[in-house]
Design a protein around this nucleic acid. Structure first.
Lengths: 129, 129
DNA sequence: CTGAATCCCTGCCGATACTG
DNA sequence: CAGTATCGGCAGGGATTCAG
């Protein structure tokens, strides 16, 4: 039973009938997957194929090693990215999207599209002086 | 000139050729629009029509008045929600989505869809005891 | 009813330095 | 090359109290 009229396009099933940010609500799951500064950028880079740690740093120069490691570990924990250490000298590591990770592509595209329809913001309330 | 091979589905134009989280990158704009705890839930509620402050609180009982006000002010500043104070006693206020705000609907749907394809997480690495 | 004002706590993330 | 260790600042957000 529900006392609310759910929009079944926004809330197609019970998973979205939530009155608080439940971690297992699909929307929260998706948000968690792309959460954190730099995350969408890291995902974007990996979308075109596997990269090493250094290649990622080179493509995102102002991203510190610490934060990059954080992001990659999170993505790994969520099984969106797979790490593979390659024997040799010097050591190389390859980061590749899993099928789950590749499933984020339509979301990234939709984020871009939505952001584009949102810009620019009208400036009627801006204070110029 | 660019030394990277941009995926033109992910990065259709120059707005996405960024090496850091620039606030005016479309993806960042969209992320900002839905950023903050409870924001997507507030948006979901407003998607079916305007609501008063109290109606929002009733639909999201564990959301504090302070945070709700914060969210509504942010959404207002981004011109995603419009506030209208209704004369009378007691005071009533109506919050309604702007056209810009309604433009977020496809994104919310995509978040839900993506989250659904992501769940459940395989548990091979979970520690049960 | 619709907020504003505080307080405080936690977690993010950036900078820096160090290691196998 | 691919990270780890540590520290600190700051903003997010929850609880509580007060006001128009």
């Amino acid at each position: 039973m529900t006392d609310v009229d759910w929009d079944d396009e926004l809330v197609p099933d019970d998973g979205g009938r939530t009155r608080a940010p439940e971690p297992d609500c699909p929307v929260e799951v998706a948000l968690a997957a792309i959460s954190g500064r730099w995350t969408t950028l890291v995902l974007r880079e990996l979308m075109s194929g596997p990269l090493s740690f250094g290649e990622l740093r080179h493509r995102l120069p102002s991203l510190s090693a610490k934060v990059l490691t954080d992001r990659l570990r999170e993505l790994e924990a969520r099984e969106l990215v797979e790490r593979q250490t390659l024997r040799g000298f010097p050591v190389r590591t390859s980061y590749d999207l899993t099928p789950r990770g590749r499933a984020l592509r339509p979301l990234l595209i939709e984020l871009y599209r939505t952001g584009n329809t949102l810009t620019p913001l009208s400036n009627i309330h801006s204070n110029t002086r």
